[in-house]
Amino acid sequence: MDLAIETIDLTKKYGSLVAVNRLNLRVIKGTIHGFLGPNGAGKTTTIKILVGLLKPDGGRAIVLGEEVHGDNPRARLKIGYMPELPKFPRHLKGWELLDIYGQMYGMPLQERRARIKRLMEVVGLKGRENDLIGEYSKGMQQRLGIAQALLSEPELVILDEPSLGLDPVGMVEVREMIREIAKDGVTIFLSSHLLSEVEQVCTHISIIHRGICLAEGPLKDIISKISGTAILEVEVAETPDKIVEAVKRLPFVSNIHVEGSKVMIETNADGDVRPQISRAIIETGGTIIYMNVKMRSLEEAFMRLIMKSG
């Protein structure tokens, strides 16, 4: 399994505070990996180590096969990074900034110019590229932040709260952008407080709390592992008493409760149990009007995990 990011017992301390505590993180290449945790969990510290802004006190961090340890420009060559609420020199024009950054990546002039033109369109800054950054709004600086992260066509894009400061339309655009980039096989490591955003775009997640990784893996697996499996919502034509009795007898059913003509069935099975439930209902003479699988949300799983870890 090819890894874009791997940390082994990564540790970072600020005095007596352990911000990152023997963190083991594995981000698979080509995935959109959400990096979640409450405030102060160690997300930004971990990201800063990955991009060379901080030096770890222990353990290792490997990004796209390059060992990261402080100032290693080679490791940053393949990474595009957008910091949380990015700040850019106010005296530069939008295109000047991207042109200079492109030059730092070693991009040839023609390629730089073409890429900048394209990116300005993509992030919605077309027509404002000749304005000084000092005249940009917060949202525009955020968009510029995304553009500079994508400038060098990196193999790994690290986005720290990319939607912060954006209006709802901007947020949707960012989500679309992330999906588009990922289509080209680019790995995206996304730190976000917006769990709904993560749920909509990420294929994999890591949840950290107090510098420790609490869960990691494919998004759906994590949700089901933490929250138990799905809830089946079944609406029947008859009084559901008999049906409840029959369904309760099924071995994978953990809980049932009734809301009028609706029966909410909690299961702990791994696979799809709708056929067995349908059969059990029909065998009691019941008529199914409607059946829906209600997945637990990431928010629910996240809260459960954080509360559990204390």
């Binding site: 991009v51 060379g52 802004l53 100032d71 420009p73 080679r74 940053r76 060559l77 990474i79 990074y81 910091p83 990015p86 700040k87 850019f88 020199p89 106010r90 950054y101 730092m104 990546y105 070693g106 932040g145 500079q148």
Partner: peptide, 15 residues
């Protein structure tokens, strides 16, 4: 002070 050091230092250029 301006925070512009962050994007600058994360480019593939040594300090």
């Amino acid at each position: 002070e301006g925070g512009t050091i962050v994007p600058l230092l994360t480019k593939p250029v040594s300090r």
